[in-house]
Design a protein around this nucleic acid. Structure first.
Lengths: 221, 221
DNA sequence: GACTTATTCAATAGAATGTGTGATTATTGA
DNA sequence: TCAATAATCACACATTCTATTGAATAAGTC
């Protein structure tokens, strides 16, 4: 009796854990941490076929990690709970510390890492308040629409070069994107500095920001 | 280039996640959260064959979640980091909230749950200080030896009935064991009440207690 | 009603995982 | 040196996962 109970309990936990045992599923969850998405959007962003995406989503749904609501012919998926973000963050932290490989990859890609000091949230808030800095959201337009840091300016990374004159030359810029492993903000900072701006990268992405209860502007849902 | 990087990063995360995708492995981690164990001890507690236990441990080791050190012919395993406990806790919380099944199981087994109010840590500390309550560790002797709450009395659950006279009749007792899903303390409280004691169950187990930086006595390692 | 689009379902093949058995490697002690 | 013990390894088998394909369902449009 107790034995059975014990067995079942751990199996339930494993069911949740299983959701995080596949790279594609983790990526889907990370994307959903940005905000609501349809199946097609998810499949495009993650680079999976629609059917495959749908199947992973079913699994995540069965594990209770995401919710789905149908609007017309579209099914909008979302994280069911902020606890999912907690788990993603815990997973990241643990992986960072233990998998030397992760560290290596981060350092390999980000050769300029030391130059791009991430800004602290408090610092940023103060400076933005005073108008000293511009907070720049370099994610795709759609993601900005779905939700962004309060007062942030949206210039998707691909358009940064052509729209760079929207930024005042003397202005200090803080770029952010999806999270610590999102490359967009790194690329943006590199580009901005190349163009003579003082630019920093925000260590956190939008999900962490929202999770921390910081001011955001969200699309009505 | 960026694509490859992205792929690799999520795969590393998945590797960590994979460790939590199997019920036996989660159980092994939960046991290790109590303290260091040998392969044989783990296999006995989890009810697995030694070879099977060893294989799961290899996987956990490759994922960087546990460390092994050889002492004579024994290999002692341990969690490599408190972040692993964080992840276990996050997994529990998320599972609890989302898997109705977990809730159901807890409630089914613990029909007397409402009667056994868990005590809050602060409350407990105050009362223990004043000598009003006895903190009782009902885990097996070996686990107590490896580490326990400061000042706790050890009476393993199996011996509780015969050694019950070690407790003063009027005394209030607070029992604890391995964690929220460990049955020992529930059984103990039931038994103690049957014997006329005022008994409570501590909601947290030893790992949570230690993790929270509360006073413990540990075996020298 | 026919057509288009978004999503899911069903079936399949191939890869990965989990477990038991028995052999193998270390370490200790006689 | 030999036997005993702890742990790991190597293999084999069954099970489970994953991605792909093409069909089915559901909602909107003409």
């Amino acid at each position: 009796m107790v034995k059975d109970y014990k067995k079942s309990i751990f199996e339930q936990f494993a069911r949740t854990g299983k959701a995080f045992s596949n790279a594609h599923r983790i990526e889907l969850l990370e994307i959903l941490a940005q905000g609501e998405r349809t199946v097609e959007q998810l499949s495009l962003t993650a680079g999976l076929t629609v059917a495959n995406t749908s199947q992973h989503l079913q699994l995540l749904r069965n594990a209770g990690l995401v919710t789905a609501r149908k609007v017309g012919q579209y099914v909008h998926y979302n994280l069911s709970d902020d606890l999912v973000i907690d788990l993603l963050v815990a997973l990241r932290k643990l992986s960072e510390r233990h998998l030397a490989e992760v560290e290596r990859l981060v350092n390999t890609y980000l050769t300029v890492k030391d130059d791009l000091e991430p800004m602290q949230v408090k610092e940023l808030l103060d400076l933005a308040e005073e108008g000293v800095v511009t907070v720049l959201d370099v994610r795709p337009e759609a993601e900005y629409q779905a939700g962004h840091i309060e007062g942030a300016l949206s210039i998707p990374m691909e358009q940064l070069e052509e729209r760079i004159d929207e930024l005042k030359p003397g202005q200090e810029v803080v770029a952010y994107c999806r999270g610590p492993y999102c490359m967009l903000a790194f690329d943006a900072v590199a580009k901005l500095r190349e163009k003579g701006f003082t630019a920093h990268r925000l260590d956190e992405g939008f999900p962490e920001w929202r999770k921390a209860g910081m001011p955001v502007e969200m699309k009505d849902e």
